[in-house]
Nucleic acid binder design. Structure first.
Lengths: 130, 130
DNA sequence: CCTAAAGGTTCCAGCCACAGGAAGGTCAAG
DNA sequence: CTTGACCTTCCTGTGGCTGGAACCTTTAGG
């Protein structure tokens, strides 16, 4: 199949598929004499897998490892576990930071009932707070 | 004062201060014959304000507006309100997305008790889930 | 007076994961 | 034969910095 069919099936833009090839996340596919990329059925699987990983915000470098380790049924799960655990840690870290932001911002939003900049509590807080 | 003193006082790297100047967030300061930047006391205030905004993840383009509007005591608070409200909305949006990620990832982490890739529930989930 | 260190300057490149667009080749339908 | 859809490569931009090279200026010490 050609790239746009793969793109539609795996729900990944063709542009992104070429990008994944350029950074070594997927292998360069077969090419015909016209220079077009032609893909196999199992490439759909791989790309869906990659998409799922990206939806979990797993970095491309980590996905490379996952894809590689997936080829080797005898290998240990440790790599996979580590990557997921680390990703979870990153997400939770970000959640904590965002909770702080949310708190501060919502305080700001409710703090000010002024109409002019002169008495704007928001700006005053941003100037001096913390 | 020279840039490194400003940097220390405002807790912003000198490199970042130059960057802020290059993107038009702060005005180019006075220069002496040696080419060095020399800053005023009020530049400290401005940079602290900017740092607070960045700590709230407010985009630089929005901070430009905040800094501009701050010069004009008679102006309406509407711009400020909008920017903060929008920022809060972005943060909450991100929080929702992260909550989903966190949920999925924590399920993945606890799902697998296998030792080898062959039976790894994590990889199987990533292959077929959703 | 010379030197070395510390600090200043500009400019270029890289990060991450793409997206947009230009310029040009290929292919199937009418 | 033309049109339009698809394919190709290559370059640029995104946001907010950060690192580093190459070079100039200032300051302190021997």
């Amino acid at each position: 199949m050609k790239i746009s069919e793969l793109a539609q099936t795996a729900h990944i833009p063709a542009k992104t598929i070429r990008y994944y090839e350029s950074v070594g996340l997927i292998k360069p596919p077969q090419r015909e004499t016209n220079g077009y990329r032609y893909y196999q059925l199992r490439d759909v699987e791989t790309l869906i897998f990659i998409r799922r990983c990206r939806e979990l915000n797993i970095p491309i470098e980590d996905i490379k490892q996952l894809v590689a380790v997936k080829q080797n049924p005898e290998a240990s799960c440790a790599t996979v576990d580590n990557i997921i655990v680390e990703q979870l840690a990153r997400v939770r870290q970000l959640q904590q930071e965002l909770a702080l932001l949310e708190h501060t911002l919502s305080l700001l939003v409710t703090s000010c009932s002024s109409d002019t900049i002169q008495d704007c509590c928001i700006l005053q807080s941003l100037q001096s707070s913390k």
